[in-house]
Design a protein around this nucleic acid. Sequence first.
DNA 1: CGCTGTCTTGAACTGTCTCAACCATGGTGG
DNA 2: CCACCATGGTTGAGACAGTTCAAGACAGCG
Lengths: 278, 278
Amino acid sequence: MNPTFLTPGNSHALDSDLAIESNLLALLELLGMPPHDREHAARQPLVIRRIKARHAVYQWGEPVRALAVIRHGSFKLCHLDESGYEQVSGLAMRGDVLGMESFDLPQHNSDAVALEDASVFLLPRDQLTALATRMPPLAQALQQASGRRLRQSQALVDVLAAVASEVRLARFLLWHGRQMAEDGWSPRRLHLRMGRRDLASLLGVAHETVSRSFTALSMAGLIAVEDRDIEILDPLRLQTFARNTRRPQEESRACGNLRPTSAASPAASSGRRSAYMA
Amino acid sequence: MNPTFLTPGNSHALDSDLAIESNLLALLELLGMPPHDREHAARQPLVIRRIKARHAVYQWGEPVRALAVIRHGSFKLCHLDESGYEQVSGLAMRGDVLGMESFDLPQHNSDAVALEDASVFLLPRDQLTALATRMPPLAQALQQASGRRLRQSQALVDVLAAVASEVRLARFLLWHGRQMAEDGWSPRRLHLRMGRRDLASLLGVAHETVSRSFTALSMAGLIAVEDRDIEILDPLRLQTFARNTRRPQEESRACGNLRPTSAASPAASSGRRSAYMA
DNA sequence: CGCTGTCTTGAACTGTCTCAACCATGGTGG
DNA sequence: CCACCATGGTTGAGACAGTTCAAGACAGCG
């Protein structure tokens, strides 16, 4: 049924079962291009592929055949390092382009796994240059998307650069909130699509530490946590807290370490749902 | 904000003092393109700009005016975070393109600072699209460069993902060695262009820890250190050591923790030159 | 020469990792 | 229906490693 399980049958991912025809018009809209050249675009056929949760659009070692523009859903970029540890190295959402990091290579150098049911526009490599030259807006859109992915990658480095795990988490939440806001969602109510384990990998800490950081931030009243639904209660304090790159130094007085402070009610945990909740 | 903090007169960076004429031919060679369309390329004028060590090609907040392709020298990409801490978020060398991360933005979102005297080809933004459409090889080269920068950024995430500081350093050295090898240099003899402080920022650790990690690796006989000149003595062992993503676990026996081991001669340090040296 | 900047080393503290439980949930099958 | 397991999340305890603070050595330079 599913020719795109994580392992078998995924090699011919692009000649997919669930392919639908669409046109370039929708893609340009998705990429935020102004509606020029709509006439050309509308006539240009395009393939949509659906990906089920936990399945990959492409995997490490697979030949590179196309770019994939995310239509809906979100993906994690990851790869197994030599010791068998799954390193998550990025997140991608609606409007992001998958596959750029290995587009000039014969084979993919990472996996792109759907965190939920998702769909993408496919831009086959062999058609792309022709398409781009015929349609300057597309080329421009892709360039823009490339820049955005580069910035996201750098933003991730910023997240990783914080030493304290709570700061890392705080930065991640704020960054993710901003991402959501760009799509018109509330920057304060987040739904994490990944489990603690993946999040830990992304943040570069142990998954237990992620748990503890969540509790710490929520005990401090900065966020509310309910499983994978996060609400940012106090964006300003969270923001100033996230500034602490190194140990609380000068301006830490404002909202420095919440370690010794706020050792308030252990909030008699009655199970995982109500574990913390300001 | 002070547009010229690091260096005076840098605000009008692009209408530079030291501008020289060249042509596209050299650029395409630099970017590794096969010598097609040489005739067109040779006729296309191009501007070279020289940048002195510690000066910036562009800085945060500056309007984006051009891409810069590194002709010689190397750069660090960085930005001051809100707490005034300089976060280094990347490294760029010969053949890399600077400015892509903000090319679709009105203003730069990071600094690109020369680590030594350097020079770059300038590709003004307003001429670029025209150039690219007229010269497909250039467009392709830029796409390729974009992919490479993306991969570098992900590689950095990999480096940061390691928990142990020595592993981070080991991974960085190996990665840097590979970079050098791509340019035809030896992957075993490295000259670091950045100080311990910048390196620490890049690796996400304290600069003292970088020092200690260098000593640890050299005491283990994996590398030899002489100030900023590093020699990789045992690439294989270094490589297996760099695999340790998390705490020394299963395969750590092979070349796991070098902490309790190799507590050999403190090597009576007679100054910084000969501090460690296998 | 003293200055400053870079690098190294030492000692104490403390945060994070690891190992180990525990709880809740969801699915499976007897 | 419930026992059973697998999965994902939370929490505790101890050890170790990285940070921080502090000091010192050396090189370059005005």
